[in-house]
Every structure is written in structure tokens, then in C-alpha cells.
Amino acid sequence: MNALQVKNLSVAYEEKVVLKNVNLAIPVGRLTGIIGPNGAGKSTLIKAILNQLPNKSGAVHILERPLNSKDHTVGYVPQRNAVDWDFPTNALDVVLMGRYGHIGMIKKPSTKDKQIAMDCLKNVGMETFADRSIGQLSGGQQQRVFLARALAQEAEVYFMDEPFVGVDAATERTIIAILKDLKAKGKSVFVVHHDLQTASDYFDWMILLNQTITASGPTELTFTEDNLQEAYGGKLFFMDQAKSNKTFN
């Protein structure tokens, strides 16, 4: 079964075409990296898959079905700067928002929902921050809260937009351990990622993207220098040095 299937997807903002004729088929149970330069359309791809863009053509199937927002198969971690962190609420409350899809309209979160939310916070090592205002968390802690919220969704397929931005090495290891754990449980996880150094360690599947799909498939087949050069438009002159030089980003 395919976790994600995309057929002839194209997206335009106003006149400008951002994604051209994207075709993808990715089997269930993969930890997939979505890689490409700034402005390649990675966030746009995720938004289009999640049905959030009006100007698109093509078909998207998740677990062989068209996306229906009423079933809870999809979890989502937006880019961290997508929300206002001064909003008056605490960490546990944000994680609880991951339960809203299950709770349904009008009804209130139950004790069980709160328990699940607390467990998810614990999972990301943030249980002592449950009552902390989200504005008083560090960037990495905020990122973990977002991840905990996605875990609380108890979804089958996850989409995460740059969950590693602005987190320290320890947090990055925590997060990747959680993602690998999700994969071990048979979930499918899609992660927008920028660090080419770590990409091949983290992901067993890759989508290389720059307006069109450069390559999509198992990491060992797709994560090649030729493909990367193509996706990054020949801007990766330092690829060889980069492999030995940890400062490359």
C-alpha cells in the first residue's frame, strides 16, 4: 500500500508556477526526507497534499484514499514560525490541540485526552514544562511541543515542515529517535529537511525537489551527487568538501 500517491500535481501562486507536474508514490512505513533548496516548493508540496491551497491541479491519495479531513490519518507539524508564540496558552494546552480532531466539534477534551497529551509531552522530554507559557519556551522546546502535538494526533501519516530548525544537537537526536520509533510502529513520516550531512542517516526514502521532482525513491538510489547537483541547480560546488566539512548546511 502507498502512504502517499500524488498524480500530476501542479501549484501556482497567482501567475507563478511553483510546482510542476509532480508525481509520487511512496510506500507505507517509510521515513521520507523532502530535500531541496530554499523556494523549491517543499512547504508548498506539503500544503497542497494537505489540501490547503486553492490553486492546484492533480490528485492526491493518502493511504489509497483522497484526503478527507474528517478521518484522523494525517498528522501535521507546521514550520515553527507559522504561529504567534505570544498567544496566552501553555505547552500542555497546545499538545491537547492535537486531540481536537478526535474529540470532534463542540465537545470538550476528556480526562483521557489530557492523559494522552501529557504522555506525548513526556515522550518528547517536556513533561516538566506542561504549565509553562509557550512564549517562555526556547525555540527547541517549542519545536518539541509541536512534535508532541502531532504525536497526540495518533495519525498514520505525518508531515513535518523543518522540525529541526533552530534546535540543538541533543534535541535533534531526541526528535529523530521519536521519528524512527514512529517508523518502527509502521507509521509513515515525511520530513522537510535542510541538512544534507545528516539526511542519508535519517531517511530511508528521499524526495529531491526543485519545482519538479528530481528524484524519488530509496535513499541509496536517489541521494546521489548527480541528483543533488540537479536539484540544487549546480550550486553545490562544495559537495565534496561538504561531506568532510561539518559546517556545510
Binding site: K47, L50, Q52, S69, K70, H72, V74, Y76, P78, A82, V83, D84, F87, T89, V94, M97, Y100, G101, I103, M105, I106, K108, P109, R149, Q153
Partner: peptide, 21 residues
């Protein structure tokens, strides 16, 4: 009736949309 819905769609409309609010 809609406390949690208006709260979520105010705090994080993109996520709210993704769960069908």
C-alpha cells in the same frame, strides 16, 4: 459551543485546517 475551535483557529489556522476545522 465553539471555544476550542475558535481558540485553535486563532492560534494556528493552518493546523486547524489540516484537522478539518
Amino acid at each position: 459551543f465553539f471555544y476550542k475551535e475558535i481558540k485553535l483557529s486563532t492560534f494556528d489556522p493552518v493546523f486547524a485546517l489540516s484537522i478539518g476545522l
